[in-house]
Amino acid sequence: MAAVPPPTQGTLDRHNITGTYVSGLSSGGFMANQLHVAYSGLFQGAGIFSAGAYDCAQNSLSTALNACMDTLTPRQTPAQLEQLTRNRAAAGSVDPVQNLSGDPVWLFHGTGDNTIDPAVNNDLATYYRDFGAKVAYNNTTPAGHAWVSPIGPNSCGSTSSPYVNKCGNADPVREMLAHLFGEVKPAASTVTGKLVQFDQGGYTPGGNPGSISMGREGFAYVPRACDTGPCRLMVALHGCYQYFGLVQNALMDKGYLNEYADTNNMIVLYPQATTMAGNPRGCWDWWGYQSAQYPLKSGPQMTAVVNMARALGGGGAGQPTSTSQPTSTTAPTSTTPPPGYTEVVTAAAYQHYVARRITYSQYVTLGGRHGYNTAFPLYKCGSGWTDRQDCTPI
């Protein structure tokens, strides 16, 4: 029951993406949550197998192991992590928390999972609910620590390579997609799309994926329908010991996402982490082994995955849906609005946005949703933005 074709070398071509979502297992689940929180203007929902609340690890391996997997030492409460998120949103290092309200979030924790303590997964549910997300939580399936699929090669209670389990007739993948999308068509019996293998170096800061514990190759499953029509995008993040260099295409082949991709017009992006010093298991960075900025929009792995999603059209083709951190203070020579944009409260807001002096969130707050009009000076006063000239200019 091969569920993925042999890969073909290619690039991440732009498609008509109507919605962008993220999912993951274990370290990939923590990473999925980080991406959803930090880039909530881009990701519209998340499906997470066995992980904890945003930045539970607090940039500490000891905390990750003893408080966010086991519960041997105290951990931050959901309320504390929620306030941390608000503080970071106010500073612009993650997107506004208001974006999470109403987002569909699907969570899973198997009753046989002894890798992540149930209380930690429960914290994730509380965290999302407190921000107003629409949470569905499957915590009654007798699964071990694994992604669960109707064609998984391992027994339900297993916690062993390649960490893809089968639990009778249970189909958590269908549950997840139905919750995220509102409805889902039955999975295809045979996949007919293509698996594109691409060089992740084109999307990683500095062009060297190995330097941030990411593999050289990444993959994207593209159904035939997505070559000509609108599709959703699902970013699927593997867990530790589950990267391509170790288990090859096990998750892509047995995870059961591609079967639903074919019948539900969904591209599946499979970014790949790998090993490096401090990360012998090939985990995604959710405790700071590679960068202290790991849970922020400026985190190197976060940036790389988002670059891949945008290359495929995530966030809308050609429109400034990015809320990324400012990276340059050099203004462009042109102030032409983005394609399809016709009016705006202030041209200054647009000019400051394209010069990366303000985030897209701030641009929208100023009324800058649709383009270009007459300019007036824009100044920063404390944490706000105004036309008062007695404040410090940007």
Rank of each mutant, 00 (worst) to 15 (best):
P162N: 07
L177A: 07
Y163K: 05
W147C: 15
P118D: 04
D171E: 10
N121L: 06
P172C: 10
P153K: 08
Y137V: 00
M176G: 07
H145E: 03
T141D: 02
P150D: 06
N121Y: 12
P118V: 11
A143F: 01
P162L: 05
Y163T: 09
N138K: 08
A133R: 02
N121G: 14
V164Q: 05
L124G: 09
Y137H: 11
D171T: 05
C167H: 15
I151V: 05
T126H: 02
D113G: 12
V173P: 08
G152N: 01
I116M: 03
Y127F: 09
L124H: 06
T159R: 07
L177G: 03
K166Y: 05
S155V: 11
V173R: 14
G168Q: 03
S149R: 00
Y137T: 07
Y128D: 01
R174D: 09
A136L: 10
D117G: 14
C156V: 04
V120W: 15
S155M: 10
P150M: 10
G157K: 07
G168I: 12
G112E: 01
N138C: 01
G132N: 02
K134F: 06
S155L: 11
N165V: 08
P118Q: 03
T140H: 01
T141G: 02
S161T: 11
T141M: 14
R129Q: 00
C156P: 02
D117E: 10
S158C: 14
D130H: 02
D113S: 13
P118M: 15
C156S: 05
N154I: 02
